[in-house]
Computed example of a mutant assay.
Amino acid sequence: MARSMIQRRQDAERQRIEAYDARLRQVFAATRPVPDFERALDDARSGFAGMAIRDGALWHPKLKTRDRARLRLAAARYLYARYPVSAALESVWLDSTGLDANEIAFRKSWYVTVARGDSLYKAGANAWLSRKEVHCFLNASGDTGFAEAFWLAIARSYTDDQGLAARLARTKIARTPRRELAFWREVVRFFCGHPASKEEIDDLCDYIGAMHQRDAAYSLKGRTLLSLRRQMLDWHRDIAAIERIEVMRRRAAGRNQRAAGTQAQGGAWDGSRLEDWEWQPTAKDARVRGERFFVRQLKTAEDLVAESRAMHHCVSTYAAKCIAGNASIWVLRRTALGKIERLLTIELDPQNRAIQVRGFGNRPALPEERKIVERWAKARGVTLRA
């Protein structure tokens, strides 16, 4: 049925009113909720029962912010702060992104201690910092974060150059785990005596961290900035060599898997079927108590490159032969008094014949080393050249 003129006018008016209301909703925001002060107090009290110096029930702030982090900081200031506290300590109330629960509790406890006017040094900071370092930490500038202020304090104990100390505090050192403090403190001390740019320190820290992870006894004592640079370049070359070997291994593994219809397994190639070998001399023959010798096969890029670097020879270039199954690389090690000594690198062909037996710098095997290799060869059915 056709609509009358009046009905059409009414529909048009209704649509105009609806459009006007929709526009108003876009222009005028919804009513903002009131700040949740009780929640802020609960957040600030959590884990610190009995530590407040003021009654939270009497807190009547004139704050307009609805930001939970800012309210939490305001509540913490009211509950605990007898004295002003640096931004480095307050930052944990504002943003704890990337921190685990233990680290958050740790930083908050330091804030509460300092805000109340208690001695941070006596409250536990003496496990990491000296009195001088605690003083420097507490007086860090306003734009300094917690970790940065922590390492700035350590660096200032080794140098009077504030610029150098601040530069060190902004490097990757500030992101190292506190359980490794003793090692990285030594690193800071090294760079205080051997200044470098932030970018170079970060690059060197990547290398230093990798060496420390590989060997917990790694130290910078006796090293120079020049030697570290050279070693870092060698390390980068090793990484590149490992990657090239890994590419070869993955390609070979992919071909084998497609042929056999199987899935990739780990990052090692198959290698020889011979088992590793270990021998312990009798108490009469051993040079020291507990002396042992072992021969094991290298089947990963990392091991092959590390052997090549440590023994100063080119065994890493044999990776393609190992991956293809045309050779296997074995190493003879001696362990005594808690230390492992590299002795020989051995190449076997697929028929388990020793093609090469070389020591450091491609030297031939020493007579006593040869005897041990012969013992291994007899036990594993390896043929040695005369």
Rank of each mutant, 00 (worst) to 15 (best):
K321L: 12
R289T: 10
R292M: 10
A306F: 09
G290N: 08
T317K: 10
D285G: 03
V295G: 11
K321Q: 11
F293L: 01
A310I: 03
L298S: 09
V315P: 00
A320Q: 13
K284Q: 15
S308K: 05
W330Y: 10
A327Y: 02
F293V: 04
N326M: 08
S328V: 02
R296I: 00
A286N: 05
I329H: 04
D285R: 10
H312Y: 04
V295N: 08
M311D: 10
K321C: 04
R309Y: 14
T317P: 00
A301Q: 05
L304Q: 12
S328G: 13
H312N: 13
C314L: 03
I323P: 01
R289Y: 09
L332H: 10
R292H: 13
S328Q: 01
H312I: 01
G325E: 02
T317V: 07
A301D: 07
K321V: 01
R296W: 12
T317C: 00
W330E: 07
V331T: 14
A283I: 05
A324Q: 10
Q297C: 06
L298Q: 07
A310K: 11
A301S: 15
S308F: 03
H312A: 09
Y318H: 12
A327E: 06
V295M: 11
F293T: 02
A320W: 07
A324G: 03
V305F: 12
H313T: 00
S308M: 00
C322T: 01
